[in-house]
Every structure is written in C-alpha cells, then in structure tokens.
Nucleic acid binder design. Structure first.
Length: 195
DNA sequence: CCTACGATCGTCT
DNA sequence: GACGATCGTAGGT
C-alpha cells in the first residue's frame, strides 16, 4: 500500500483520475471529490505555471501533497492538489464534490438552494470547505486539512477542461460518470465570427 | 432546461 | 490596462 505522497508524486494524468472518490477534509466538513482537472505545468498553455514561477503560483513548484490556492474574478477561490515529481509544477484542480460530513456547517457558508450544489463548482467547493489564501501551500498529510484516497472509482468520464481560452482542448477533465454533483459545463467564451 | 450579464480585484503585460 | 481554471441572478424557451 503506497502512501498518499507517493501516489501524488506520479504523473499528473495518472493522479487526476485517482483523486475521484478521495475525501478532502477541513475541520468538521468533508467533501468526496467527483470532478477534477489536470494541469501539466510547463507543457500546458492552460496552466498558471506555463510562464514560469511567480509569487502567486509558487506553491505549484513545491512538493506534491500540498495545496495551491488562488484568488480569481475578484471574489472566488479555487484550490488544486500539487502533484508530480517534486519541482514539476503540475496540479489537479478540484472542481466539484459531494459534502459527506458537516453539511450543516457547509450550508451556513453558502447561499445555495440545494445540498447538491454545496460543493458543485471549484469556487463553491472552496466556500463549503472554507478554503482561502490562508490555506495556500497547506500540507495535506498533516494538520487541519487532510486528503484521503477512497476506493478507486471505476466509472470515469473525461472531456475538455472548463473556462480556458488560448489552450488547445485536451481531455484533461475527469469526473465520476453519472455523479449528480459534477459541475455544469460552461464552454469558453465563443470567438466573434470571422469577417 | 437554457443563455446573458454584472460583480470585483489581484496578477501580469 | 486587460482579463480571468467563477458564481448567482434574471429572463426566455
């Protein structure tokens, strides 16, 4: 049986689907992951690390098994699990999951009508788990934030990533087939019609 | 169900 | 100075 850190140190495209079914816990709230996206560091025009290391993305260049959290759209946070061999800035964006513990608390943090939507979407997942910049770089093998691999999910679907422009479409989004909590797909803004 | 749009600010050009 | 790994609401079908 391999440790979490060993698994996360593998190639990002192998790690990402293995995270489906894993449970991320922060204090009293826990979320079982149903949708993730792979970001392959320097080879990936869609990755925050594509243009090298900056203060914001520094956590991606750290050891696997840590969190990379960023702030976007002036109001939302998204979180990634850093993976790949140490120093390779690869990460898996946690896009959605189902709240399996602490639903009461998660509900109080969110303005959502249904429990299904509590952690459905990357920023909602962060809200439900109270993950913000304070958690950037957090070690997932100790402390209040922990990640536990679950039973391997066998029914996995793949498709293009969400919300990206300027990156070739790569089927690097993975979700548990049929899961109710998978985020709704919003295609990237369409280009204006050619003249 | 769907598409459209405003919010709001850190980051990098 | 432009834009974003998004969300919630509004309104139409």
């Amino acid at each position: 049986m391999s440790s979490l850190r060993e698994v996360l140190a593998g190639p990002v495209l192998e790690v990402a689907p293995r995270l489906l079914g894993a449970v991320l816990t922060h204090g009293d709230v826990a979320v079982r992951l149903t949708e993730v996206e792979a970001y392959d560091g320097p080879n990936d025009p869609g990755s925050h690390a594509f243009r090298g290391r900056t203060p914001r993305n520094a956590a991606m260049f750290g050891d696997p098994g840590h969190l990379y959290v960023y702030f976007t759209y002036g109001m939302h946070h998204c979180c990634n699990v850093v993976c790949g061999p140490p120093g390779t800035p690869s990460a898996v964006l946690l896009r959605a999951g189902e709240v399996v513990r602490g639903a009461e608390i998660a509900r109080s943090r969110r303005t959502s009508r249904s429990d299904r939507d509590l952690a459905r979407g990357p920023a909602r997942l962060c809200q439900a788990l109270a993950i913000g910049l304070a958690e950037n770089g957090a070690d997932l093998t100790s402390g209040p934030l922990t990640l536990e691999l679950g039973e391997q999910v066998t029914a996995v679907s793949t498709g293009p990533r969400v919300g990206l422009r300027g990156a070739p479409d790569r089927p690097w989004r993975f979700w548990e087939s049929g899961a109710a909590t998978v985020s709704s797909y919003r295609p990237a803004k369409r280009l204006p019609p050619a003249p």
